[in-house]
């Protein structure tokens, strides 16, 4: 700032106090405004987040009537959201008769640009992934972002088998031979491979845990 020109007389203590007082008052008022807005919008923001997840789960498990949330803590499953917001979550969906339709889990992986966050549905009885939905990404428009919309690509996830002996992997477009492989989108190989990696890592971690607790989950306990 050129307001501190050398020809200017030095600041007196009174001036200094005046400045501190002004900045203090302005900071106080600004802080108050921020706190009021934060408190006022907190519940609406929470509701929005919740609705977004609920809609995604309902889309992945068509016909779902009831939903139970489990949180994963140190390799153990507990019912409810839990206090740890970073803990992994499993959303179990049941139909009208109370039968378990499937489980929805979150997964994320580094894509071509920034993290790709997604949700996928897993059927423990069929031992396969039955649905996939991208929640958040910054992939290149027209190329990588097709992982969320490309019909042929999403067809891969209607019945993608989880086999402990074979990792889920994205292969070159049209080269899919086994039902644990994903046909990549041509021109979006990096993004497709990221999807393969994210599902493989997540399911390998979650499937044993689900199998151990399947009885509990089926009863919704």
């Amino acid at each position: 700032m050129n307001s501190q020109a050398p020809s200017r007389p030095p600041l007196s203590t009174a001036d200094g106090i005046k400045m501190v007082r002004l900045l203090g008052t302005v900071s106080f008022v600004c802080g108050l405004l921020i706190v009021i807005t934060h408190r006022g919008t907190l519940s609406a923001i929470g509701r929005n987040q919740e609705r977004l997840t609920r809609e995604a789960v309902a889309e992945l498990l068509p016909g779902m009537q009831r939903q139970v949330v489990y949180s994963v803590h140190g390799g153990e499953l507990s019912k409810g959201e839990g206090s740890d917001r970073l803990a992994g979550k499993i959303y179990a969906g049941y139909d009208a008769s109370g039968k378990l339709l499937g489980l929805v889990m979150e997964a994320s992986e580094r894509g071509y640009a920034d993290m790709i966050k997604a949700m996928y549905a897993y059927s423990p009885s069929k031992r396969c992934i039955t649905g996939f939905k991208v929640l958040e990404m910054k992939e290149t428009p027209g190329l990588g972002d097709k992982i969320a919309t490309d019909k042929n690509f999403l067809e891969n996830f209607k019945q993608l088998v989880y086999d402990p002996d074979h990792p889920i992997v994205a292969v070159k477009a049209g080269a899919k031979k086994n039902n644990w492989e994903i046909d990549a989108i041509s021109g979006a190989t990096i993004s497709s491979r990221a999807v393969g990696r994210m599902l493989n890592r997540s399911i390998r971690e979650m499937a044993p845990l689900i199998e151990r607790n399947l009885r509990r989950i089926e009863k919704g306990e």
């Binding site: 700032m1 900045l23 921020i34 923001i45």
Partner: peptide, 22 residues
């Protein structure tokens, strides 16, 4: 006061940006 005007303006602008963010 002239010496702290930019600091004051930025403080006020940042406050409203935080509010709009929420």
């Amino acid at each position: 006061p002239k010496q702290v005007r930019i600091a004051t303006y930025i403080l006020i602008i940042a406050t409203f940006v935080t509010i709009v963010d929420y």
